[in-house]
Amino acid sequence: MDDKTPREIIGRRNRPAKAPLSREVIVATALGILEKDGMSGLSLRRVATALDTGAASLYVYLANLDELYSLMLDQALAAVKLPKAGSLSWRDRLKKYLLSYLHVLYGRQGLAQLAMSTIATGPNSLRMWEVLLGLLKEGGVADAKLVWGVDMLLLYVTAVAAEKSNWRATGQDFGRVKSALSAVSAEQFPLVSALFQGEWLSGMGDGDARVRWALDGIIDGIKANRMPLPDPST
Score class of each variant (00 low, 15 high):
Val160Arg: 12
Asp216Lys: 10
Arg212Met: 10
Gly140Pro: 01
Leu136Val: 05
Gly207Pro: 01
Leu195Glu: 14
Gly86Val: 09
Asp92Asn: 11
Leu201Pro: 02
Asp208Thr: 12
Lys145Arg: 14
Ile119Trp: 08
Arg212Cys: 07
Leu181Arg: 01
Ala48His: 04
Gln172Leu: 10
Leu114Trp: 08
Gly41Pro: 04
Ala30Pro: 06
Ser182Phe: 04
Asp151Pro: 01
Val160Glu: 15
Met39Tyr: 03
Arg93Trp: 08
Ala115Glu: 13
Pro190Trp: 06
Gly54Phe: 02
Gly221Asp: 12
Ala162Arg: 11
Glu35Ala: 11
Arg91Asn: 09
Ala48Asp: 05
Leu102Val: 01
Asn64Ile: 02
Gly107Phe: 04
Gly217Phe: 06
Gly54Gln: 08
Lys18Gly: 02
Ala19Asn: 03
Ile119Tyr: 08
Leu73Arg: 11
Met72Ile: 01
Pro16Glu: 11
Ala186Cys: 03
Leu42Tyr: 01
Tyr106Phe: 05
Leu114Gln: 10
Gly139Gln: 08
Lys81Leu: 09
Leu68Ala: 02
Arg23Ser: 04
Val211Thr: 14
Gly198Asp: 15
Ser165His: 01
Gly32Pro: 01
Leu126Met: 15
Leu215Trp: 07
Ile26Gln: 00
Lys145Asn: 05
Val177Leu: 14
Leu94Phe: 06
Ala162Glu: 13
Asn225Ile: 10
Gly207Val: 06
Val60Ile: 05
Leu44Phe: 03
Leu68Cys: 01
Val27Ser: 00
Val27Phe: 01
Val25Asn: 02
Pro123Tyr: 10
Glu187Asn: 09
Pro20Ile: 00
Met204Asn: 10
Trp90Phe: 13
Tyr101Pro: 00
Ile26Glu: 00
Gly110Asn: 08
Asn166Thr: 11
Val27His: 03
Ile9Gly: 00
Ala183Phe: 02
Leu215Gln: 09
Asn14Val: 08
Asp143Met: 07
Gln197His: 06
Val177Cys: 01
Val27Arg: 03
Ser202Trp: 03
Leu133Val: 03
Gly139Leu: 06
Ser179Thr: 06
Gly134Arg: 12
